[in-house]
């Protein structure tokens, strides 16, 4: 997909995620500071930044894997508070893909994909299996359905993890460094799956170091450092015309060789 094509992808005016003045502390450590972010439906946002900048923590706040201490997070019109009902509602709307896949090793690939639809969405088993096979075909590993995660390569496992999230029919997908634990040969197959997802108009927030992916797919790149959003822009201007010194320094580090 070229950049021109990427920019043609529809971004609607509808707000998917609204974060206002969000703060978070780990003990005394102020890990997220006054985060303000509005994500529209259909947006593909790449979040970059040095390690420890709070980018993973930020997207983990969006489905409440981490609790924020002040400010507001509204996902699809539901505000995240300590109300368990809201949390469950948001979690069933938001899919998440982790750095270490976190597949359930005691279940087959198919069972991994059908578990949540059956137990959370109360989908009949047969229908859940059909949906699972549909998405496994989409990530191009239907033939592995009866194997266990331990029998698959890292790239395959990550594609299963994506399929598992999609089986819940989420409206928003969060990716937390999805390719960081993979061999170079496997990164591409996972990125291809993600690009395909983007083409279908999924709202995506992706923490990643894959700048090529950012340039090809993202419609916005956010740069974070020290728990703050330092800069955000469209990929072209972000990479070719960074404004802040911190961003320039970061880009020279990762693109310098």
């Amino acid at each position: 997909m070229t950049q021109a094509q990427a920019q043609k992808l529809q971004v609607s005016d509808e707000v998917a995620i609204q974060i206002e003045k969000m703060n978070k502390w780990y003990g005394q450590f102020h890990v997220l500071r006054d985060i303000d972010l509005t994500v529209h439906r259909g947006e593909r946002i790449v979040i970059a930044g040095p390690s420890g900048s709070g980018k993973s923590t930020m997207i983990r706040c969006i489905n409440r894997l981490e609790e924020h201490q002040s400010g507001k997070i509204i996902v699809d019109g539901t505000e995240l508070t300590s109300d368990l009902k809201n949390i469950d509602k948001v979690r069933s709307e938001v899919g998440m893909v982790f750095q270490h896949f976190n597949l359930f090793p005691h279940l087959t690939i198919l069972e991994n994909c059908t578990l949540a639809p059956i137990w959370v969405r109360k989908v009949p088993k047969k229908e859940a299996e059909e949906t699972a096979m549909y998405f496994l075909e989409k990530v191009k590993i239907p033939e592995q359905a009866d194997k266990y995660p331990g029998q698959l390569s890292g790239g395959q496992q990550q594609r299963v993890a994506i399929a598992r999230s999609l089986c819940m029919r989420p409206r928003i997908m969060l990716f937390d460094e999805p390719t960081s634990a993979l061999d170079p040969e496997m990164i591409k197959e996972v990125l291809d799956t993600m690009i395909q997802l983007a083409e279908e108009g999924m709202t995506m927030l992706c923490v990643t170091h894959e700048m090529g992916f950012a340039q090809a797919v993202a419609n916005r790149v956010i740069f974070m450092a020290d728990g703050q959003i330092i800069e955000q822009n469209n990929p072209h201007d972000f990479f070719h015309n960074p404004q802040s010194e911190r961003t320039k320094q970061f880009l020279s580090q990762i693109l310098g060789h």
Binding site: L65, V94, G95, M96, H100, L103, A116, S165, M168
Partner: peptide, 15 residues
């Protein structure tokens, strides 16, 4: 068990 198992279960909306 790795923390990731709890997180994956949470993220999928399992109570």
């Amino acid at each position: 068990l790795p923390r990731g198992q709890y997180e994956a279960a949470d993220a999928l909306g399992l109570d």
